[in-house]
Amino acid sequence: MSELMLAAGAITPEVTVVPGGWAILALLILGSLTLFAAALDGALSARAAGVANGLGRPFGETARLLRQRRRTTVQADHLLWRIGGAGLLVTAALMVTVVPLGEWTIFDLDVGVMWFNAIDVLVWAVVWLTGWGANSAYPLVGGYRFLAHGLGYELPLMFALVAPAIAAGSLNVGQVAGAQDELWFAVWMPVAFLVYLLGVVAFSVSGPFAPAVGTDVAGGVRGELSGVDRLVFEAGRYALLAAGAAFAVPMFLGGGAGPLLPGWAWVLLKTVLLLAVLVWARRRVPALRPDKFMEVGWLVLLPAVLVQDLVVAVIAAGRG
């Protein structure tokens, strides 16, 4: 497969492609990160509410939802509804395929950065379909809210991903990670890094971008989801946050670079730390109204990240 995906001689691979069976390990790692994010979120929620034992919340919720009877609605479009509900987990899994774990990767695509971008756009479709499928007003409102947010955050996110690619002179994720030997991209392109993180929080439908699943619209997109459907949807949101954090490591945080520990350990460590910061930070930011965020995205974030791209491009050109 690798000779198919790497256009012959176009790039020299920075990473080794492992056989497809290792994808199971990648899924296990993604699952563990998802569980970590959910447990940390549970602990933070419990502490905020003054209740004990929040760390076990994901297990309790899983047990509760697995036993819960599936609710349905009149004339629901079950096909689209299920595709939407399960889609978040699938998109998260597709995202991590291009993330190198130290020196190994499952899918060494020469345009890995574009791949990540294409998959994060799939989240638009998936969330809206979840809202549409229930044939219920509030979930549909939630779906529209997410698309409105999407129009605000997606272009800044795209141009944030452009900056590391320009600096590395490649769209291959391994090459982008390898181009940060001297200085992490997060250090000298902070605007792109922050906008990227905002985009991650946004496509995981969480924190300031949670109005799509807000309590003011009876749970929005997930309003009619119950039982295992809800479990899969909620897990998918945490998994997307984890996948976004994992992708930030090769893009902005130097990949597997670091002293003493091997590359794969550094990738995991950086991912866990960034994920913890994201879980913590997204609780501290108030909800962004979709209608108001539109202007913030287009008039503040997009110009800021374009200037960042220009600066990066000038520096990259100056280096030759």
Partner: peptide, 11 residues
């Protein structure tokens, strides 16, 4: 092997 064109089409 038009990876860029293919991924952009999907996106």
């Amino acid at each position: 092997q038009q990876n860029y064109v293919g991924v952009v089409t999907i996106l």
